[in-house]
């Protein structure tokens, strides 16, 4: 055989050998499961009897009749649309303050990062239950300064906002990313604009922000995708119910209830597919909009 061909075959064999764990994972843990869940989404399946093909019934039921589903989508959208922008505004504002060459940057950065480190844990979600409960710390503090308390978690008007506050509280991770990006903005640009008489405010809008739009975009995409999938805080704060009055019933929590408490696996699978489509749509919109506002150098 042609020695060159042997060489090529050998190279491919070695390449695929190293790739094999990942490739098996891609097939067995991603590709096939995605297809399987697409199949299940057209069935009624309780894991005890064989899946029963019912066509589009799950989707029809969900989109047309299921008030609870509609509500869970609304709750999740509010969480994403309020939580992500507010979190990123905080992240960027603090990053800008820290980036002004102040001393102790590393310590400040570390302190602000700590909530991101702990934020996803059950421990912090449990803490949140206490903080915003009727007799919680927030109310104690409010009463100390003479303001009336409110049962933040037991009231359907405010329960979701305690979760949004928890999301915003974890602004440290995107802040770290913003800080790294801000360091890359060439200082000459600021000097030049100062000579031209531009103030801080103008510098931010004309220089800083345009130059870091790729990172803003990255943070928006990643945080949005993550926020759609948030589960632990809603589960813990509402004790798995999504209450009061379904006001914290995140999409993922409802999906979990359908699939793993009521064992309506087919319905849960169709919910998962709709979630996939919603996330894909939102991400695609973000990428499309990026052409208008993300500024790439070169």
């Amino acid at each position: 055989m042609n020695p060159k061909l042997i060489n090529v075959l050998k190279r491919n064999a070695v390449g695929y050998l190293f790739l094999s764990p990942w490739l098996l994972g891609l097939i067995g843990l991603s590709a096939l499961p995605i297809l399987a869940s697409l199949y299940f989404s057209f069935t009624r399946y309780d894991m005890l009897t064989a899946p029963d093909w019912i066509g589009l019934d799950n989707y029809r039921e969900m989109l047309l009749n299921d008030q609870k589903w509609r509500n869970s989508l609304k709750v999740t959208l509010i969480y994403v649309l309020l939580g992500v922008p507010l979190q990123l505004v905080f992240a960027l504002s603090i990053a800008l303050m820290l980036n002004r060459g102040i001393r102790g940057l590393r310590i400040y950065r570390a302190i602000y990062y700590v909530p991101s480190l702990f934020g996803g844990s059950v421990a912090v979600a449990l803490l949140w239950r206490q903080l915003f409960g009727g007799e919680g710390l927030v109310n104690l503090l409010l009463r100390q300064i003479g303001l009336p308390g409110h049962n933040w978690i037991a009231s359907p008007d405010t329960a979701l906002y305690t979760l949004i506050v928890l999301k915003i509280w974890q602004f440290g991770a995107p802040m770290v990313i913003f800080l790294a990006a801000l360091k890359q903005v060439p200082t000459e640009l600021y000097e030049a604009s100062r000579i031209d008489g531009a103030g801080r405010w103008k510098q931010f809008w004309r220089i800083t922000l345009p130059l870091i739009t790729p990172i803003v975009f990255f943070n928006v995409v990643m945080q949005t995708i993550q926020a759609f999938q948030a589960f632990t805080p809603a589960y813990i704060v509402s004790r798995g119910t999504g209450g009061p009055l379904d006001s914290t019933l995140f999409y993922t929590l409802y999906l979990y209830q359908k699939g793993f408490t009521h064992f309506q696996m087919g319905y849960a699978a169709s919910m998962a597919w709709v979630l996939l489509i919603v996330i894909a749509f939102v991400t695609a919109m973000l990428f499309l909009s990026a052409r208008k506002w993300v500024y790439y150098q070169e």
Partner: peptide, 16 residues
Amino acid sequence: TMMLPFHVTIIPQYIM
């Protein structure tokens, strides 16, 4: 795959 919501694979994975 980094962007896929894990919910879309979790049900078949659980069954498996």
